[in-house]
């Protein structure tokens, strides 16, 4: 955990980008509600999915960058203990991001109710996107492609075809019923599979690094 905090601190200005987007998401949701006389909850749900879920991968990708692109990347693997595996870091970062999302949803709960279903759907989407970024980064030994892929996926599927395609993890409609969690279980299972596959690659990478 201490290492992770140091790695996050090392991001300097870039550490704060998710904070900026979360604050912006708060403003955008408020504006969307105000623009629709506090009626258009479906639009709020899509804004939250673009801004909150989309930026979940920011910290994980930028932490992974040090392990995959920095000049001393081998050293980072050499000094790694088993508890320091990257997958744990990814899960910790997801937990940290989810904590921030909880705060944001507390604020959303003052604007519209209920928020719990949308919150659950959102944090599961965040977990999936982090798992996907982790898997792609280790598969391709590169962090640029997972970043592009993540945002291309979020922008395309949340705006162009939304949930009409089976490959979409996003939900459409008013977030006031448990129906929006229909796809969440599958997304959660997929996230687990991606983490497992990523972990297998990480173990190989760890061995090769030594």
């Amino acid at each position: 955990m201490n290492n992770l905090i140091l790695e996050l601190k090392n991001l300097r200005f870039y550490l704060f980008i998710p904070y900026i987007t979360l604050v912006l998401a708060g403003f955008v949701v408020l504006a969307t509600l105000k623009g629709s006389d506090f009626k258009d909850l479906a639009a709020c749900a899509s804004v939250i999915q673009i801004f909150v879920s989309g930026f979940a991968v920011w910290w994980p990708i930028f932490i992974l960058k040090e392990y995959l692109h920095s000049p001393g990347k081998e050293l980072l693997f050499v000094y790694k203990a088993r508890k320091d595996i990257l997958m744990n870091k990814m899960l910790l970062l997801w937990g940290l991001y989810a904590l921030h999302v909880v705060v944001l949803f507390f604020y959303f709960s003052t604007l519209f109710k209920p928020v719990i279903y949308l919150f659950i759907a959102t944090i599961i989407q965040c977990l999936f996107l982090i798992a996907l970024a982790y898997f792609l980064a280790l598969l391709l030994q590169n962090t640029f492609i997972p970043l592009i892929f993540n945002f291309a996926y979020v922008f395309t599927l949340s705006m162009v075809v939304f949930s009409d395609l089976p490959i979409s993890i996003f939900t459409r409609g008013v977030p006031d019923n448990p129906g929006i969690l229909n796809t969440s279980v599958i997304v959660l299972i997929l996230a687990g599979i991606l983490f497992w596959a990523g972990y297998q690659m990480e173990m190989r990478l760890y061995k090769n690094s030594i």
Partner: peptide, 20 residues
Amino acid sequence: YSLTLIFLFLNTRATEALFR
């Protein structure tokens, strides 16, 4: 990475909700 993302963001309709 940040500049590329800003560029991608500005070339999509994701800006719509934010710019309103």
